[in-house]
Amino acid sequence: MSSNKHRSKKVILIISILLAIIFLAPFYLVLTNSFKTQQGIFLNVMRLPFGDFFNPQNYIEAFKQLNYIRSFLNSLFITVFSTIIIIIFSSMAAWMLVRTKTKLSTFLFFLFTSAMLIPFQSVMLPLVNIMGRLGLLNPIGLIFMYLGFGSSLSIILYHGFVKNIPIELEEAATIDGCSPIQIFLYIIFPLLKPITVTVSILNVMWIWNDFLLPQLVINKPQWHTIPLKMFYFFGQYSRRWDLALAGLVISMIPIITFYFIVQKHIIKGITQGSIK
């Protein structure tokens, strides 16, 4: 029995190593070739960037051509404010849906749940048409749209967490003279910290990496986010793979860094929300 378990562990380890190699291979190709000259990429894609083929100037040139600082600040502004607004509205909505025991609250919750089944592509053209008539084809309108598309999942996560918060805490606060806003701000919202971290992470990674919605909404170069800038950058430098790959690496650095810092909170928060 022990030999079978030992053999199965070896098989699992080998499979895990093979899968890791498969998933990491694209990152290896992008990273190594981003340091090569154009000639070095064409001669040998797999080779490490040594000797005459090593060219770190790719990053300096890509940084300038991407207008990286401006693009980074645009992405940061849209991501941070969209996430904050989603957290505020979703947490308050989930709290009221849990505490209000009516048929309307049940209907609204299932309405938010069913909204996740609607493909974005089926509503994007009418949505952009309406936002254009309202004069909201700009970062502010984009933040407003992210609130609409990101609220469903966030409300579901908050809804499962709020259920386990004892209602007696709110009743005691009401007796002490707290208003509903005070109860939410000083009692409920601090208890939602674990799931708020998870909601923040999921929305930050989604909004930061999103390309389709900014492409439809943002029509001025000075408002371009990093994914949108990379799209036009690849179009402009499609034949300069050395610059294009270097631009791709520096565009991935912020979100990869963010992910490694907060990855431990993702599964923890989702698990707590499902148990609650």
Results as ranks from 00 to 15, higher is better:
203 N>D: 09
203 N>S: 12
203 N>F: 07
203 N>L: 03
203 N>W: 05
204 V>K: 08
204 V>N: 01
205 M>L: 13
206 W>P: 00
207 I>N: 04
208 W>E: 02
208 W>K: 03
209 N>Y: 01
209 N>F: 01
209 N>I: 00
210 D>F: 07
210 D>C: 04
210 D>T: 05
211 F>V: 01
211 F>T: 07
211 F>Q: 04
211 F>S: 00
213 L>A: 06
213 L>P: 00
213 L>H: 05
213 L>D: 00
216 L>H: 08
217 V>E: 04
217 V>R: 03
217 V>Q: 06
218 I>P: 01
219 N>F: 03
219 N>E: 09
220 K>T: 14
220 K>G: 06
220 K>C: 13
220 K>R: 15
221 P>E: 11
221 P>G: 14
221 P>Y: 11
221 P>N: 11
221 P>Q: 12
222 Q>G: 10
222 Q>E: 15
222 Q>H: 12
223 W>A: 14
223 W>G: 12
223 W>D: 15
224 H>K: 11
224 H>C: 10
224 H>T: 13
224 H>M: 14
224 H>V: 10
224 H>L: 12
225 T>K: 05
225 T>F: 02
226 I>C: 04
227 P>E: 02
227 P>N: 03
228 L>S: 04
228 L>H: 07
229 K>M: 13
229 K>E: 10
229 K>Y: 09
230 M>H: 05
230 M>N: 05
230 M>K: 00
231 F>L: 10
231 F>W: 08
231 F>K: 06
231 F>C: 01
231 F>G: 06
232 Y>I: 01
232 Y>L: 14
232 Y>A: 06
233 F>W: 10
233 F>V: 07
233 F>K: 03
233 F>S: 09
233 F>E: 03
234 F>I: 11
234 F>G: 09
234 F>N: 13
234 F>T: 10
236 Q>E: 15
236 Q>I: 14
236 Q>M: 08
237 Y>P: 12
237 Y>G: 11
238 S>V: 09
238 S>H: 06
239 R>Q: 15
239 R>Y: 13
239 R>D: 15
239 R>N: 15
239 R>H: 15
